[in-house]
Design a protein around this nucleic acid. Structure first.
Lengths: 212, 212
DNA sequence: AAATATAGTTAACAGTGTTAATATTAAAAA
DNA sequence: TTTTTAATATTAACACTGTTAACTATATTT
């Protein structure tokens, strides 16, 4: 059935074109400004056609959310070349921070907004979360390796990993939301032109070093 | 001019009634579902009347955001009675967590959403942020007292405080967004019925204890 | 060639924030 | 007291939003 296959391919193509248009709009104007009608206009189809390929807007956003995790995954690949576990942990933090700063909209969609994860809960009953879990598993493994190298030996691995993730996530969240810059501008005790995010991260690293 | 005063009072009254109605809707249905028209219906005025008392929707939400900080401030009051600095720091963390869990919508408005802080940037040029800064100052002071008691002596106070805030904020964010519960349900290595948030926080405390 | 399934469309519903023009009301001036 | 003026509130409208039902055109199968 060659014809059927070609049709399937065409259908999958259009599904991808919708996603690409959505991505472009999303990265340019953010979540709210990415309307179904604008996506439709970009791919030169009727707005309702999109509903033949995606259940609703959160479905599209969940697909983008997955793309975001794939992107983060590729950024994490360089970490494979950092063999010393604690060095790898530090590098992981920097990659995470850099990802959040370079892709703020993706970061929001992946870790801050409630819509995509609610879509998972409502429609993806067969639990195929993968991408996100992989990143956390990578963290768990690195913490485990750190423990083998004498770091954090007295702490539970999962708990410690969650602490690290919480701190990194909180730091990125405060930065993206503007709270960090606000503090930098109001707290006169701070020297000017200081990168509060870097400074906080460096402080965190020195805390971790003391926990060897 | 008794009449003028009465009019001013009436005007201030209506402004408050708008805010109360907005608050009720906001706490019941969240940000998006709190529409100008619904607020208007609740106070039995025309939707456009609201624009005579508030610039726009973000103005109303900023007012609620301030109320949230006042509420957090009152929750922090109990901390005055905890004299031992490290105990006070721990209690502060618990109060912060409890506030986030008990008032998730307020927490989102205060620390996660971008709208209110952008309203500050755009319209409140005279920097009257107060409520939020007070809470952070309280944290700074407690960290300073901890240092005087022999804790964290080798760390910069502001950097350390930002680390603590980042971790607490990240933990609350991951919890409210659903990521923490998701991890608890997928990571089978974890025992069932475990409170990941409490466990992570306890782990953090034991980390801090090691930094004495 | 007729019946059927697929793909895409138009029109509409029920909302949203927001603004301009208008009406109503109350205070101030004549 | 009547007229003018200022403040307050309203109606109507604009330009959007996500989403669905009903309809049409196309292509495949019987």
């Amino acid at each position: 059935m060659g014809i059927k296959e070609r049709k399937e391919k065409h259908k999958e193509d259009l599904r991808q074109r919708i996603l690409d248009a959505a991505k472009e709009l999303f990265l340019k104007d953010g979540y709210d400004a990415t309307s179904i009608r604008k996506i439709a206009e970009k791919i030169e189809f009727s707005p309702t056609t999109i509903y033949l390929y995606y259940k609703d807007k959160t479905d599209i956003m969940y697909a983008l959310h997955q793309e975001g995790f794939k992107l983060l995954g590729t950024q994490f690949l360089v970490l494979q070349h950092v063999h010393e576990p604690f060095e790898r942990l530090k590098a992981m933090g920097r990659v995470y921070m850099s990802f959040a700063l370079s892709n703020p909209d993706f970061y929001e969609l992946m870790f801050i907004m409630k819509e995509p994860i609610e879509f998972v809960k409502n429609h993806c009953h067969d639990e195929e979360w993968e991408e996100g879990e992989q990143a956390f598993t990578a963290l768990i493994n690195t913490v485990e390796h750190c423990k083998a190298a004498g770091y954090f030996v007295q702490f539970d691995t999962t708990t410690f990993a969650l602490n690290i993730w919480s701190l990194m996530h909180g730091l990125c969240g405060l930065k993206l939301q503007g709270h960090l810059d606000h503090m930098a501008s109001t707290k006169i005790s701070l020297p000017d032109n200081v990168n509060l995010m870097e400074q906080t991260f460096d402080g965190f690293i020195s805390m971790l070093e003391k926990l060897k």
